[in-house]
C-alpha cells in the first residue's frame, strides 16, 4: 500500500533545534545549506499510521521570530505544523506561540504539535508547568523533546502523522 503524501512545516525561533531534533528521524533529501540560502529545506519521512501509510513531506523553515512573505508562502497548503521551542529560553516559547497564531490567522486552523526542546537540560529550563498548560490549549499535543537523545521526537512526529493521515 503506497503512502499518502502530506505537507508538514517545522516552525520556531532561531536556534531552538528544529533541524537537529528531527534530523535523525527523517530522510534528508537535501543539504542544510538550503536553510541559509532559500530559507527552507525539504525532508521526507514515511510512517505507518492507523489510517495507513503516510509520507510526510517536511518543510523545515529557517528560524524566525516573525513570518515574512516568503515564509508565509512556504506555509501555504501545509497539513500540519511541528512547532519547536527551546525550554531553556522561555522567550522562544512566546515566539512559537506568536508564529502559531500568525499561521492560524493566515491559513486557518491546521493541526499542530508542540515540541519543547532540550529536555536533557531540564535543570536549566525557565518554562513552568503553567506555560505547558497554556501551550496544550493551542496544540493537539505538547512534547518535551531532546535533540541530543532523541527523546519523544518520534512520538511527536507520529502524533502529527496520525492527525494528518486521515
Amino acid at each position: 500500500m503506497e503512502a499518502v503524501a502530506r505537507k508538514i512545516c517545522i516552525i520556531g525561533d532561531f536556534a531552538v533545534g528544529k533541524t537537529s531534533t528531527v534530523a535523525r528521524f527523517v530522510h534528508n533529501a537535501f543539504s542544510e545549506k538550503y536553510l541559509t540560502t532559500v530559507g527552507v529545506k525539504i525532508d521526507t519521512r514515511e510512517i505507518d499510521t492507523n489510517s495507513g501509510p503516510v509520507k510526510l513531506v517536511i518543510w523545515d523553515i529557517a528560524g524566525t521570530d516573525r513570518f515574512s512573505a516568503i515564509e508565509f508562502s512556504y506555509l501555504r497548503g501545509a497539513a500540519g505544523y511541528l512547532v519547536v521551542a527551546d525550554g531553556t529560553r522561555g522567550h522562544t516559547v512566546d515566539v512559537a506561540r506568536r508564529l502559531r497564531a500568525e499561521a492560524r490567522e493566515r491559513y486557518g486552523e491546521v493541526p499542530s504539535v508542540m515540541l519543547v526542546n532540550k529536555a536533557d537540560l531540564a535543570d536549566e529550563w525557565d518554562t513552568d508547568e503553567a506555560t505547558f498548560d497554556s501551550l496544550a490549549q493551542d496544540h493537539a499535543a505538547v512534547f518535551r523533546t531532546s535533540a541530543k537523545t532523541g527523546d519523544n521526537v518520534e512520538n511527536a512526529i507520529r502524533t502529527l502523522a496520525e492527525m494528518v493521515a486521515g
Binding site: 503524501a5 502530506r6 505537507k7 530522510h27 533529501a29 537535501f30 538550503y34 532559500v38 527552507v40 525539504i42 525532508d43 521526507t44 509520507k55 513531506v57 518543510w59 516568503i70 508562502s73 512556504y74 501555504r76 497548503g77 501545509a78 497539513a79
Partner: peptide, 30 residues
C-alpha cells in the same frame, strides 16, 4: 502546497525522492 501529483521518468533517469524534489522546486520558485 507543492505536493507531487504525478511523476513519470525514463528508465535509468536519475531520480531522488520525487516528493522532496517537487516540494523543493516549489520552495525555490516561491
Amino acid at each position: 502546497d507543492g505536493l507531487l501529483i504525478e511523476h513519470v521518468h525514463h528508465e535509468g533517469a536519475l531520480s531522488r525522492d520525487s516528493d522532496a524534489v517537487s516540494a523543493m522546486f516549489t520552495a525555490i520558485q516561491d
